[in-house]
Design a protein around this nucleic acid. Structure first.
Length: 434
RNA sequence: GGAAGGGUGGCUGAGUGGUCUAAAGCGCAUGCUUGGAGAGCAUGAGUCGGGGAAACUCGACCGCGAGUUCGAAUCUCGCCCCUUCCGCCA
């Protein structure tokens, strides 16, 4: 949410930002409503002042007659006030619904574009991995897809997954399960000394934190909802951001960095047909997320954004997965995001880079909604800034790991970083896998 | 799921219809005092919104939301959360 004063004073900037994001919002309507809101508020305040004065006069009145006279007079004021408050309610209802639709302003460096096809590559690793369109990994055989490879080694069972869990359901078995556990251990270790606070956070989360992070009210269709009214979070970001809701932070503690784990649930409404097979796009998965709260400075947000992006890149490098970083275009940004990098690892079977991490910052868009503040050096309260990026999402990353490490005979070389935890160097047809 | 009791400022806690403009204590800040600290004394201090150059001033905020009333921290209703006990349970 933006400050309504800022919207009033910078209508053109806000409008241009919304246009860049391809989001429709009626700012003129909002500002007209805000005028009415302010005008009405002044009237209501005036009546209240009158009431307060009368209330004192009644309490200190010397006679009953005097008292009755004031009460009779105040009955009219009460009626007028009631009508004004009623119209205030109506105005506020529409005002609020428009306010939560106003998108945050994208950074100047965000490219124009209509869809993720317009995202721009920023860098790739290894740096020498070919020109645009070139393949970073050459196979002298036809590489199998992750769907096939996981099935071949009995690492996953999609059919029984669907039988038990429904569409996009899956079981991970044998080295599929072991690799997820090894990856968890791997990412836990790598984040142990980076100054992040490890947390296991709720997936079952109440509405407020979804509104606060910007997933609601727009994303209702993307979320599972319980019969008690909570929602299942699609990322640990929601609960982690909710952690300090309505609190004032100590400036000396900033930046606060969290390494948050949770199961994640996504309805993937509207994604039918996309990635329908395998474990790339699923309803239920596990994710370690980086969440950061910092002081209200663009430079600090930008610096930490690079830092959490670099953290993700380090992991992919150690796993030996070729990747690229793209800057997301305006249309591919969420409501509250100022700027976003997606990190995409190479998928040989598709000859494409596919997303493994998503790194973004929000300035005070989320913290204003969540009411997370800190006291600045000048004593003033400010909304903190917030950022987040994936640390590691499983089982998606298995897709790129098995595809990039496959050999002509179908066996899979296990990345060095996972070998000790998995207790071997190769996945082939052996005991426990067939 | 059942029963009972609660939710008041940074904290403890008083307040059951009208100067509540929220007592008191603790803690905090500043000053006096001191060689320094403590104690003591004095003063001050919340958040959000409106008006104002400012001093200041008006309004809102006692878990949240509705209602009763000229007037609500206080009464009524709904919801949320906490505590204790019972039940269930990894």
């Amino acid at each position: 949410m933006l400050d309504v004063k800022f919207i009033r004073e910078n209508k053109d900037i806000v409008a241009a930002g919304a246009k860049k994001k391809r989001i429709e919002v009626d700012l003129d309507r909002l500002i007209a409503l805000d005028d009415k809101r302010r005008e009405l508020q002044a009237k209501i305040d005036e009546k209240r002042a009158e009431q307060n004065a009368a209330s004192n006069a009644i309490a200190t009145a010397r006679s009953d007659a005097e008292r009755q006279e004031i009460i009779a007079r105040m009955q009219d004021v009460k009626e007028t006030l009631r009508l004004e408050e009623e119209s205030m309610q109506e105005i506020l209802k529409e005002w609020r619904s428009l306010m939560v639709q106003v998108p945050n302003i994208p950074d100047i460096s965000v490219p124009e574009g209509d869809s993720d096809a317009d995202n721009k590559e920023v860098r790739r690793w290894p740096a020498q991995s070919g020109v645009e369109g070139g393949e970073p990994v050459k196979f002298d055989f036809e590489p199998k897809s992750h769907t096939e490879l996981l099935l071949l080694h009995d690492m996953a069972d999609y059919e029984r997954g669907a039988k038990v869990s429904g569409f996009r359901g899956y079981f991970l078995k044998n080295d599929g399960a072991r690799m997820v556990w090894a990856l968890e251990r791997f990412v836990q270790d790598r984040f142990a000394d980076k100054g992040f606070t490890p947390m296991i956070v709720p997936s079952l989360v109440r509405r407020e934190a979804f509104i606060g992070t910007g997933y609601l009210p727009q994303g209702e269709d993307d979320l599972y909802k319980t019969q008690d009214g909570e929602y299942l979070a699609g990322t640990a970001e929601v609960a982690t951001m909710g952690y300090y809701m309505d609190e004032t932070l100590d400036k000396n503690d900033l930046p606060l960095k969290f390494f948050s784990f949770s199961p994640c649930y996504r309805r993937e409404a509207g994604s039918h047909g996309k990635d329908a097979k395998g474990i790339f796009r699923i309803h239920e998965f596990l994710k370690y997320e980086q969440v950061v709260l910092c002081e209200a400075s663009h430079e600090e947000s930008a610096r930490l954004h690079e830092e959490i992006t670099a953290n993700a890149e380090e992991l992919l490098q150690e796993l030996g997965l070729p990747y690229r970083v793209v800057i997301n275009c305006g249309a591919d940004l969420g409501l509250g995001q100022v700027k976003k990098f997606d990190v995409e690892a190479w998928m040989p079977s598709e000859k494409k880079y596919r997303e493994t991490h998503s790194s973004s910052y929000f300035h005070d868009f989320q913290t204003r909604r969540l009411n997370i503040r800190y006291r600045g050096e000048d004593g003033a309260l400010r909304y903190a800034h917030s950022l987040n990026n994936t640390a590691l999402a499983t089982p998606r990353i298995l897709c790129q790991i098995v595809e990039n490490n496959q050999r002509p005979d179908g066996s899979i070389a296990i990345p060095k970083a996972l070998q000790s935890c998995m207790g071997k160097e190769t996945i082939d047809h052996g005991p426990g896998n067939r």
